[in-house]
Amino acid sequence: MFAGKAARLRLSNGGVVPLELVVEPWAQVHQVLPEQTCVVVTHSASTDGSWSGTVRANEPFQVGHRSDAVTVWVNGDCFHLTDEEGNAIDAIDVADWQCPAQGSAS
């Protein structure tokens, strides 16, 4: 059983054109359609609840944006995209392969 932590970051596109979502460090590119909301979910296997933050320790995400794109740096061990109800979006991601919450495929 997975004993770590999960974190969720909700992203909404309130614009009229698709928004590029880049998830790093995996360089995964996804599209968030107009009026669509997606949730970036990450997991940390650390039982003490810590995250390996890039700017500050213990932060699960770092976000940057441009007019047509959002880049999310994930500081967990993996990531998944879901809708607001938790249903998988783009379920086959490179980052899923080593996810401790799903049982890693070594």
Rank of each mutant, 00 (worst) to 15 (best):
T42A: 07
V63Y: 05
Q98F: 13
V74P: 02
S104G: 11
V63F: 07
P25Y: 01
A69R: 13
R56W: 11
H80T: 10
V22G: 05
N13C: 11
G15P: 08
A6T: 14
M1T: 12
V22P: 00
V74L: 04
T82F: 02
V39K: 01
H43R: 09
E24Y: 00
V16K: 12
G103I: 03
D93S: 15
S44K: 02
P18Q: 05
S106G: 13
C78M: 03
D77P: 05
E84R: 08
F79R: 01
V70D: 09
V17Q: 13
C99Q: 01
Q31N: 10
G86H: 03
V74R: 00
L81R: 00
V41L: 12
P25G: 04
V63W: 06
G103P: 05
R66Y: 09
G76P: 03
V41W: 00
H80R: 15
H65W: 13
A45K: 11
A88G: 06
G49M: 07
V70G: 08
E35A: 15
A91W: 08
V72R: 05
L33T: 05
A101H: 01
N13T: 08
W73G: 05
V32P: 00
F79N: 03
K5T: 15
Q62H: 15
H30W: 09
D68S: 15
K5N: 12
V63A: 08
T37N: 04
Q102D: 14
S12M: 10
Q62I: 03
F61T: 04
L19D: 02
E24F: 01
G15E: 09
R10D: 09
A101M: 03
D93T: 15
T71F: 04
W51M: 08
W26A: 05
L11E: 06
V55D: 10
N13Y: 08
H65A: 15
V16I: 10
D96Q: 09
A91C: 06
S104E: 13
V16Y: 02
Q36V: 08
A7R: 01
K5P: 00
V40R: 01
I89C: 02
V63D: 07
R66K: 13
C38D: 05
G76F: 02
G4D: 07
G76D: 03
V41C: 08
G15M: 07
A27K: 13
S52T: 11
A95Q: 04
G76N: 03
A69C: 11
D83M: 04
T82A: 06
E24L: 09
G86E: 06
G64W: 12
N87I: 06
E24M: 10
M1S: 13
Q28V: 10
H30R: 09
H65F: 13
P18I: 02
Q31C: 02
A91N: 07
I89H: 02
H30Y: 14
G76W: 01
A6I: 13
